[in-house]
């Protein structure tokens, strides 16, 4: 029983903490923020050449 409990606690410590890490990763700093993404990936500039409209 003690072994099972320790295993469960170990698993919780290992995997339970992962979502928090995922949420705090630098990926989400940018990809979770539309304003930052707009500055990092500006929309393409439409050409005003022939064919427009």
């Amino acid at each position: 029983m003690k072994i099972k409990l320790l295993s469960a606690l170990a698993l919780l410590a290992l995997f339970g903490a992962v979502p928090a890490i995922a949420g705090e990763s630098s990926c989400i700093d940018c990809h979770g923020n539309a304003d930052i993404m707009k500055t990092l990936v500006p929309p393409p500039v439409a050409s005003s050449g022939e064919g427009e409209g």
């Binding site: 979502p19 995922a22 949420g23 990926c27 989400i28 990809h31 979770g32 923020n33 539309a34 993404m37 707009k38 990936v41």
Partner: peptide
């Protein structure tokens, strides 16, 4: 927007 990830989705 193309690659903006929904934060709520990430949490759930």
């Amino acid at each position: 927007m193309g690659y903006v990830v929904d934060k709520e989705t990430i949490e759930t």
